[in-house]
Amino acid sequence: MPIRYLFKQFFLPPGLFLLMLLAAWWLRWRYPRLARGGFVGGLLGLWLMSLPIVVEWGGRALENDAPLPQSAWTQLQREAQAIVVLGAGRERGDPAWEGDQPSHLAAERLRYAARLAKASGLPLLVTGGLHYGQPPSEAALMAESLARDYGITVRWREERSRTTRENALFSAPLLREAGVRRVVLVTQAAHMPRSRWCFERQGLQVVAAPVGFLGVANARPFGGWLPEGKAFWQSAQLLNEALGRLLYPWLY
């Protein structure tokens, strides 16, 4: 099991806040003041991450690339030579589909990339390796979805990567071999700055095509100040991205 998976489970929410609450209970008699601080911190963290308004604020802070105007889609061949779609995990064994499927984040990227490909005529590369070592690869699932759902045949499949850095590292040789130096990059808006950084580090010119913006009006009752499960998941995604953006330049 990858160490980074364990790190995320224990040191990112909700694991971190649950550990704080557990520590508060354990230390309540010996260190009551420390226990109170851990209890308040854990409870406050869980509450804040469940607020749609916090998701909106986080999205605005992290989504630094502007959306690609639809008026520019038909002109993308002037700026790029291929479209690259990053994997985003998979859903295991859905009985309705009789097998694994791209995650809903990946499906959102695929739908957007299909629109771009049909408007521009650019070829597609999908990138994503095995999910915890189990086939099929994310790239294979994405290629199948594009073919069946959108009638688009993928030109390149990169099936080894496990991280955003590896998406770029392993995709770049496939593109260079085909003479591709400029790409349209499709991923979630908050994920785009780190993804673009990784691909530019491989010597590619990137046209950002972000999708799935979270830093927009949340349209929830009471201005987004009521907790909800969806907001907690979105907050966790944004926090993971914020940490990744801090760590990538240091690690790579």
Results as ranks from 00 to 15, higher is better:
A119Q: 14
L124P: 00
L125C: 06
L124D: 01
Y132A: 08
A139Y: 04
E79W: 10
E108N: 08
V126Q: 07
G128L: 02
L86C: 06
V85W: 05
T127W: 03
G121R: 07
A72I: 00
A113P: 05
D94Q: 13
T74R: 14
G133S: 07
Q101V: 15
G99Q: 09
V126S: 05
A107M: 15
A80P: 04
I83H: 00
L76D: 03
P123S: 03
L122W: 07
V126I: 09
G128S: 01
Q134I: 15
G89P: 11
V126G: 04
G89E: 12
A117N: 03
R115W: 11
K118W: 10
G129E: 03
R109G: 02
Q101G: 00
L86Y: 06
V85D: 01
H104Y: 13
L130K: 12
E108C: 03
R111Y: 13
G89F: 12
L125P: 02
R109P: 09
S120D: 07
S103P: 08
E98R: 14
A114N: 07
A80R: 05
E98Y: 13
P95W: 12
Q75S: 15
Q81E: 14
L86T: 05
A139E: 03
P102G: 09
S120H: 07
A114D: 08
A82I: 01
L86P: 08
Q81T: 03
G89Q: 11
G89S: 11
G99R: 07
K118D: 05
W97N: 05
L125T: 04
W73E: 05
L130Q: 10
L86H: 06
P135L: 03
Y132K: 10
W97S: 08
S137H: 08
A72H: 12
Q134R: 15
T74K: 13
Q134H: 13
A88E: 11
Q101T: 15
G121N: 03
P136R: 04
P135Q: 02
P136I: 02
G93E: 14
G128T: 02
A72N: 06
G93I: 01
W73G: 02
I83E: 00
L76A: 04
G89T: 11
A82S: 06
L105G: 00
G129I: 07
Q134Y: 12
A113D: 06
L116D: 02
G128W: 05
E91H: 09
D94I: 15
P135M: 02
G93H: 12
V126A: 10
P123M: 04
A117V: 02
H104R: 13
V85H: 06
R109A: 03
I83T: 00
S137Y: 09
L110R: 03
R78N: 06
S120R: 02
Q77M: 09
A114R: 01
R92W: 14
G128V: 01
L105Y: 10
A119C: 12
D94M: 13
Q81S: 11
H104S: 14
S103F: 10
L124C: 02
E98I: 09
A88C: 11
A88I: 12
Q101R: 15
L110M: 13
A72E: 14
